[in-house]
């Protein structure tokens, strides 16, 4: 009997200890979760910074990209980058209405991704993570550089022989680079309208 009481007390104590530890660990953490290896993070991390951070080695030109586009992209996006079922990638002259209507803000003619995007890295990142549709992740870095170069060349942003790589891609001056005002935000902040008026 005595023994059992002692044992119960001990178990209770252990439980208390566990609870106390979870709530009062000095740095306030729970110690839950697994630490990934640097290789695991590298494999998962497909997010490219506008300054080029995290771009893999490789290079490509519009010329190389044209052949890859015909082979891997044209079926959905159209031979000339428009007129297919998938979104327009190359601005047609004269402009045609997008085959994929969308809600505002609509990315229609004139605002195709290679013209609309603020950074060339965004195009690289998107093709790398998302295309070709249903075979995502199958492109080599060289192919992604080449396809990005091809789309930028066809939209009149870069020259046909420009080589895009880790250094040159983030340096491409996108036509819409300054086309964005980035709203400030803080907790509890009202929107400017109708509370504040400019001028």
């Amino acid at each position: 009997m005595r023994f059992r009481v002692a044992l119960t007390a001990m178990i209770l104590c252990l439980c208390c200890g566990g609870l106390a530890a979870a709530q009062s660990s000095t740095d306030g953490t729970y110690g839950v979760g697994k630490t990934p290896t640097p290789e695991e993070i590298r494999a998962a991390d497909i997010t490219i910074s506008p300054d080029g951070k995290n771009l893999p080695p490789g290079k490509g030109t519009a010329k190389a990209g044209a052949a890859i586009f015909a082979q891997k992209c044209a079926a959905c996006h159209g031979e000339n980058g428009y007129g297919g079922l998938a979104p327009i990638l190359i601005k047609p002259e004269p402009p045609v209405k997008s085959s994929t209507p969308c809600l505002a803000p609509c990315i229609g003619p004139g605002s195709v991704m290679p013209l609309h995007a603020p950074y060339a890295t965004v195009i690289w990142d998107y093709i790398n993570r998302a295309m070709p549709f249903r075979q995502e992740g199958s492109l080599e870095p060289d192919e992604v550089y080449a396809l990005t170069a091809f789309l930028l060349y066809k939209n009149g942003v870069i020259k046909e022989d420009e080589v895009l790589d880790q250094t040159t891609l983030p340096e491409v001056k996108m036509p819409n680079r300054d086309g964005y005002a980035i709203p400030d935000w803080k907790p509890g902040m009202p929107r400017p309208f109708p509370n504040k008026r400019k001028g």
Binding site: T47, S49, A117, Y119, Y126, Y180, P183
Partner: peptide, 14 residues
């Protein structure tokens, strides 16, 4: 910094 991904940039304005 602001990465302005594919999803982001269509949602902000000049």
């Amino acid at each position: 910094r602001y990465y302005m991904t594919y999803n982001d940039y269509g949602h902000i304005s000049k």
